[in-house]
Structure formats: structure tokens, C-alpha cells
Computed example of a mutant assay.
Amino acid sequence: MADESWRLPSSVQQLAASIQEPPRQYLLREQEPLGGNLAGTEMPEPIPTIDLGLLSASNDAEEAAKLRSALQTWGFFKVSDHGMETSLMDSVMNASRDFFRLPLEEKRKYSNIIGGKHFQMEGYGTDQVKTQDQRLDWSDRLHLKVEPEDERNLAHWPIHPKSLQG
């Protein structure tokens, strides 16, 4: 059986603590998509902002075109008029920071890799690795399904910090 250990990358936190330079799968070459928009290079234009209030209230064609363009060119966008209270966003950010400050072994209790072999979307870890030459994001994630509430898998919800409990 072929060695497929490449399918289970180490956490970025673990890599950052033990290496001088990121492994090749985390590096983009200039000719690759997004290669010209890497951190440290001058941004060609501001990050697009999508007004969710305008988009959802009137199904505004111009705002829909902005959203489509942002997804095709940038792959992400900022959101305005989303209706979320600042206090809620602050609470989520604080809970997230508290979780990511936990020791690695504590975070691994909520791994998105089952039995050391099988990837699942929910939990703590990195993206699914499908090919050996796939480019990976230099990030660790905690993906939790929130809605619909009856589909929450609380086994993936950390008990620390308390504010993250589902």
C-alpha cells in the first residue's frame, strides 16, 4: 500500500514551531493564480465590499454583479450592512482567540481527522488534502456547524473556552 501520509498535514501551529520555512505545498509560485496578490505586494485595488442589506432587500442587480466579480477575481469580500451586532462579533472573535490560544493537544481533541485517517469538514485542523501537489492554506481552522441547530454535532464543539459551547 502506498504511503499517503501527505493527506494528513501537520497543523500550521505545529509546523511554525518546528521549521524555518514553510513546506513547498504552502508556497505559491508567481505564475499560479493569486500569486500576484500575496501579502507584502501592492494591492491592485481595494478589497470588494458587498452590501448584504442592499443585496437581500432588493436583489439589486448591480450589487449581485459586484458579488459575482468579487468571487471570480478575489475569491473573498468584505460585508457591510449584515445586521450583526458589534457585541456579537466581538464575542465570537474573543472566543475564537481563546480557543486558538489553547495548547495544541487540547485543540486536537476536536480534530477534523477521524481515526487518524478520514477527513471531515467539522472540527479543528486544516483543509482536506486531495492530491500530493495541492497548495495548502497557511492556517488552522475550527469549523463548527451552527445552523440548522438540529444538525449541530456537539462532539466537535470545544468545552474550553466555555463561550464556544453549543
Results as ranks from 00 to 15, higher is better:
Ala2Trp: 12
Ala2Asn: 13
Glu4Tyr: 11
Glu4Gly: 01
Ser5Tyr: 07
Ser5Leu: 08
Trp6Lys: 14
Trp6His: 10
Trp6Phe: 12
Pro9Asp: 03
Ser11Gly: 07
Val12Lys: 09
Gln13Pro: 03
Gln14Glu: 14
Ala16Val: 04
Ala17Ile: 00
Ile19Tyr: 07
Gln20Arg: 15
Pro22Cys: 04
Pro23Ile: 06
Arg24Thr: 13
Gln25Asp: 10
Leu28His: 15
Leu28Val: 06
Glu32Trp: 14
Leu34Tyr: 15
Asn37Cys: 10
Leu38Asn: 12
Ala39Gly: 07
Ala39His: 08
Ala39Val: 11
Gly40Ser: 12
Glu42Asp: 09
Glu42Gln: 15
Pro44Tyr: 05
Pro46Arg: 07
Pro48Trp: 00
Ile50Tyr: 12
Leu54Gly: 09
Leu54Val: 06
Ser56Phe: 12
Ser56Met: 08
Ala57Arg: 15
Asn59Glu: 10
Asp60Ile: 00
Glu62Gly: 08
Glu62Arg: 11
Glu63Phe: 02
Ala64Cys: 08
Ala65Val: 01
Leu67Asp: 05
Ala70Ser: 13
Phe76Val: 04
Phe77Trp: 07
Lys78Ile: 00
Lys78Cys: 04
Ser80Lys: 15
Ser80Asp: 09
Asp81Thr: 04
His82Gly: 03
Gly83Glu: 06
Gly83Phe: 02
Gly83Ile: 02
Met84Gly: 00
Ser87Phe: 01
Ser87Glu: 11
Leu88Lys: 06
Met89Ile: 02
Val92Gln: 01
Met93Trp: 04
Ser96Phe: 03
Arg97Thr: 04
Asp98Ala: 07
Leu102His: 06
Leu102Ser: 02
Pro103His: 06
Leu104Ile: 13
Glu106Gln: 05
Arg108Lys: 15
Asn112His: 11
Asn112Gly: 09
Asn112Arg: 12
Ile113Gln: 09
Ile114Val: 14
Ile114Thr: 11
Gly115Ser: 12
Lys117Gly: 04
His118Gly: 04
Phe119Gly: 05
Gln120Glu: 14
Val129Leu: 00
Gln132Trp: 02
Gln134Gly: 05
Gln134Val: 00
Leu136Phe: 01
Asp137Thr: 05
Asp137Lys: 12
Arg141Gln: 15
Leu144His: 13
Leu144Tyr: 14
Lys145Val: 03
Glu147Lys: 12
Glu147Met: 04
Glu149Lys: 12
Glu149Tyr: 10
Glu149Gln: 13
Asp150Ile: 05
Asp150Asn: 10
Glu151Ser: 08
Glu151Asn: 08
Arg152Tyr: 00
Asn153Gln: 11
Leu154Glu: 11
Leu154Cys: 07
His156Ile: 00
Trp157Glu: 02
Pro158Leu: 06
Ile159Leu: 09
Ile159Cys: 11
Ile159Lys: 15
Lys162Leu: 02
Ser163Leu: 03
Leu164Arg: 09
Leu164Val: 04
Gly166Glu: 01
